[in-house]
Simulated assay, not measured.
Amino acid sequence: MRGLLKAFAITGVALTLGLSSASAQDSLGDVSLLAPAGAGGGWDAAARSLQQVLTSEKLVSSAQVLNVPGAGGTVGLAQFVSSAGNDPRQLFVAGITLVGAIISNGAPVDLTQVTPIARLTGDPLAIVVPASSDIQTVDDLLAKIKENVGGTIWAGGSAGGADHMLAAMITQAAGADPAAVNYVAYSGGGEALAAMLGNQVTAGISGYGEWQAQIESGDLRALAISYPEPIEGIDAQPLKAQGVDVELVNWRALFAGKDITPEQKAAIDAAIEKVVTSDAWKEILAARGWSDYYMSGDEFASYLTEETERVRGVLTSLGLAK
């Protein structure tokens, strides 16, 4: 919560980061933001949005985004863990899909090896079908799953990621075995969209923004969103509002090196507090269709622990974790 952050003199804290006295008052110096995925995806967009606001608000001297894709983000995480250490200028952007990838891949690194800074955004996932589909409602989709779970083909992002987890949760809500979900993981949103428009799959899941143009053009029909509450500007209603007890937020967050000092963390916390309360950040959220999902401090650290166990439970039901 924003209110949990205490005001402090940035000058003294910034000097502990090794900044010159001239730059210490307002800037964290030269920072890098590692996005563990290729350019154009959600983590990359979040990192570049942070880069933009940190720079425009003069909270850094400069900011560079580094893309290190592979294995659902675990390749980038491993690189970050090995290089960041006690360097407060190295930051890392990731989210729930990385939590799933760590578990399903049995990765040798995990998020206990970094310092949680803040949860930043929540991206509502949309459940869509082709406009020509005879599935008109969420109830129609549940009925189809119950009738033939294997014949219900889902399109989405990486295996074990947020899209896959939501498909499993909806399948379970329909009374079918989530481990039997017929899920096709596509490497990019364009491929998943082509499968949807080509009627090669039954339904698709992705961030609402990924499908928005096709929903508005009428090529895709949005049945629901996975967010717990209705979102202004989105006609599709939450699954919960339609009687399906499922919610999943595709959140994105910021992390720092494991060995930064409390003073260094406080300086980063203060900078991110200024980011999320800035008009520039609010404009980005509106433009990208992201929700303000800010949470920091011990509250975010506790949330991360609980979310990891929740994700592990979903992946276990899919047979992707033990």
Rank of each mutant, 00 (worst) to 15 (best):
G190K: 14
I268T: 01
L98P: 02
W290R: 08
V181F: 01
A180R: 09
D134F: 09
V275I: 10
D123G: 00
T137S: 15
A94H: 09
G257W: 11
G319M: 04
G29L: 01
N199P: 00
L111M: 13
E247F: 13
L318I: 05
V93P: 06
V13A: 12
K322N: 11
A47C: 12
R89A: 14
L34F: 03
L142F: 07
D140Y: 09
A301E: 11
A301H: 02
M295G: 02
Q172T: 05
E307K: 14
A159Y: 02
P36R: 03
G12N: 14
L320T: 01
I170L: 13
V184L: 09
Q51G: 03
S23R: 00
A192V: 03
S104F: 04
V276G: 06
L59T: 07
R310K: 14
G161D: 03
N105E: 11
G40K: 08
K258P: 05
A39P: 01
K282Q: 15
N67T: 07
G204A: 07
G218W: 08
I225F: 04
P88N: 12
I103A: 08
A168E: 02
G198Q: 08
A236R: 05
I135A: 06
L5C: 09
F8R: 15
A167I: 04
A46Q: 11
I103E: 02
I272Q: 04
V201S: 04
V181N: 00
A168P: 06
A37H: 02
S158Y: 07
M1I: 13
G3A: 15
S133N: 12
D134Y: 10
S83M: 12
V93G: 10
D279S: 15
L142G: 11
V75R: 09
I96P: 01
G151N: 07
V114K: 05
L17I: 00
T308E: 07
K274H: 07
D110L: 12
L239E: 03
S217P: 12
Q212E: 14
Y303I: 02
A280Q: 14
A35H: 04
R221C: 08
F8W: 09
V201C: 03
D235K: 15
P262S: 14
A84V: 08
D163P: 06
Y227D: 09
A167Q: 06
L28I: 04
G198E: 04
Q25P: 00
L5R: 15
I135V: 15
V249S: 09
E273W: 09
G204N: 08
S217D: 11
A222S: 14
A195W: 01
V93L: 13
A253T: 10
L125P: 01
K274P: 02
Q90K: 15
L54G: 10
A271N: 05
G106L: 14
E307I: 06
L5H: 15
V53N: 06
T112M: 10
L220N: 07
A9S: 14
G122H: 08
W290D: 10
I102C: 06
